[in-house]
Structures are given as structure tokens and as C-alpha cells.
Design a protein around this nucleic acid. Structure first.
Lengths: 130, 130
DNA sequence: ACAGAAATTGATAATAGTTATCAGTTTTAG
DNA sequence: CTAAAACTGATAACTATTATCAATTTCTGT
């Protein structure tokens, strides 16, 4: 993997986010800084960065894939209303893997845990003001 | 929601499966029985059946959505090698929702837990025969 | 049983998200 | 400095899914 300015930009832009942006969010943000960067380049680099374990691709959201810079195992919350994804900084329940192992044939290497519900913003705006 | 023969067929075909088929698997299987059924009809009915809580749509697999007839909360296993999805009949850890609640703003209504690893078939065929 | 409204269908166009292709450019190692 | 390898931008192609629409089917009331 050679150095490339564009890959650096993609990684930097992802690091700016605390939400979990999609490829085209990263793309349109980068376009402002670097008007020549291509959508394919953004997809390509997000893919290769994820394959090399430098970032993480989240596939559990319906529609477009999301990306995050934090590759340490952790859990997520998705708002049913607005689709927002955020981290849940609770402890990872490693015992789950062992438990699940005894219920299936094969080897378990890890798990994803995703909570669903309604985020604070959506709760507050549901039946009040605007 | 009116009755329709095609919707009945889609539901029946899904019930035949113990894996978690995608829309186009259901479609091509149904085509053998009912050569006039349309791909759009299959997508449409899987969608409306899921919206009405009769079946469940699984969005956590990369690529096409998968469907299952079992709407009771339960966990899944996905093989990293072959992509196969299967149920993990372990007990649902309801305490997780309460724990997660204290780490985020908003309300949690449930969670999805997906285990990753290598299924038995892939384990056995990895470095042996064919 | 019959008419009309509502729901559904099949065919296909359209859309969203992503990957493939390819000629030209950049990076890297010698 | 040069050649190979990696990478880029533009865009075509592809996959998964939804929208459109005229024709058909189902349902409801009489």
C-alpha cells in the first residue's frame, strides 16, 4: 500500500466525525477541500482502509454502509426515527461468544451488538414544538 | 391488506427455508412453481409482510437483505467465509438493553446480536479434500 | 350475483449504492 | 532517473430495490 494524498484526506475526514458517516458524506465534505477528488477514490479508499483494519465498515445499517475510525470492539445504537448511529460505550460482553459457541457448529470469533430505539433528539421533537 | 395468491406463495416459500434467504432466492424458487410471478411482486410482498410483523427482514448482512419467518427475538450467526446466516437458539439477554440505556440519551426498545466466525462446513473444507 | 372501489399484479423504468475499467498520473525502489 | 507498481478521476456497469402504470383481482354493499 503506497502513500496517497487522497487516502490521507479520506482518513482525516473520517476522523473528524463522531457520528458514523457514509461514503458519500465523506465525498461531499472532501469535495469542498479538494474539488478534484473522485467518488470512486473515496469508495476505494474506505474499502482498502477497512480491509487493512485501519478503519471499520459498519454493514448493519440498512441502505448505505457507514464507516468509523474506531476499530476497537464496541457497541452501537441506531435511532429508529432518524437513522442516526452512535457508539454505546458500555463494556463488551465477551462471555456472549462462549455461550453462543455451545449452540452452533463452527467457531465464533466475535459479535456485533446493535441497540435500537429512539434517540434524544427524536424523543424531544416528537409531539412538541415544530 | 387483501388476500393475494402471490403473497401466500411468498410466505409459504419463506417458511420452507431454515436458512435466511434473500428476495431473489425466493423469486427464483417461486418461478419454478409459478412462472408468471414477478420479481417486483416478491420484493413488494416481502416488504409488506415485514412491515406487518408477519416475517422479519434482516438488514445486518452486507449486500442483499435477508428474510426469515421467525419474528420472535433471537440471535444470529454469520459465517465469514460463505456468508451463511443461521439462528443461534441461546437465550435472549434482556438485561443488555437496561445496561445500554445508562450509556446513551434516548430510549432503547431492543437489540440485534450477530455472531461472526467460521461455520462447520467452511471449517471442514478449509485445508483438507477438494 | 354485480358494480364499483380498493388492492394487487407483471413488466419495466428508475434509483441508490457500489465496483470495474482504463488511460493517465503519482509513488517507490533501485 | 527510470521502470514497475500503485493510485487517480471519469465513467460505465452492476446489484439491490423501489416507483410507475395499465390491467387484473379482491372485497364490500346492495
Amino acid at each position: 500500500m503506497n502513500y496517497s494524498r487522497q487516502r490521507e484526506e479520506v482518513l482525516e475526514q473520517l476522523n473528524v466525525h463522531h457520528d458514523h458517516p457514509t461514503a458519500d458524506v465523506i465525498f461531499s465534505e472532501l469535495r469542498d477541500k479538494d474539488p478534484n477528488i473522485s467518488l470512486a477514490t473515496v469508495y476505494r479508499n474506505l474499502k482498502v482502509l477497512a480491509e487493512n483494519g485501519i478503519i471499520r465498515k459498519l454493514t448493519f445499517v440498512s441502505g448505505a454502509d457507514h464507516f468509523e475510525p474506531n476499530v476497537n470492539p464496541h457497541y452501537h445504537f441506531i435511532c429508529d426515527c432518524c437513522g442516526k448511529v452512535c457508539d454505546v460505550p458500555m463494556q463488551v460482553a465477551e462471555t456472549l461468544d462462549a455461550t453462543a459457541s455451545s449452540y452452533i457448529n463452527g467457531t465464533i470469533t466475535g459479535h456485533d451488538l446493535v441497540f435500537y430505539g429512539k434517540c434524544d433528539d427524536c424523543c424531544n421533537s416528537e409531539d412538541s414544538s415544530d
